[in-house]
């Protein structure tokens, strides 16, 4: 294999006083977790949403019920 890397130097940020030098690809991390935002739905709308989801699940339920019926029929046969 002829491919060679000519050099391999540590990378660093432009402002070393903000970020200490890191040995490789990225600056040293300053960890600070992100808190997950709440996307809760108010109760009345949540009920509406649940009904909507139930409605959307109808075709899926119908398909599962039909598959179950077919399975029972197959077993009886």
């Amino acid at each position: 294999m002829n491919f060679h890397i000519r050099s391999f130097e540590p990378s660093r940020l432009a402002q070393p006083e903000i970020s200490p030098l890191a040995p490789t690809g990225v600056p040293l991390s300053c960890p600070r977790p992100m808190r997950a935002a709440s996307l809760a739905v108010p109760t009345p709308l949540s009920l509406f949403g649940t009904m909507l989801m139930a409605l959307l699940a109808v075709p899926r339920g119908a398909m599962m019920a039909s598959a179950l019926l077919r399975m029972r029929h197959h077993r009886r046969a």
Binding site: M1, F3, H4, I5, F8, A22, P23, T24, G25, V26
Partner: peptide
């Protein structure tokens, strides 16, 4: 396969793995 066969590629890969 370069990581196995080429020491410089392996060195780079290991250095990046450290982070």
């Amino acid at each position: 396969a370069l990581v196995l066969d080429d020491p410089q590629v392996r060195r780079l890969h290991l250095a990046l793995l450290a982070d």
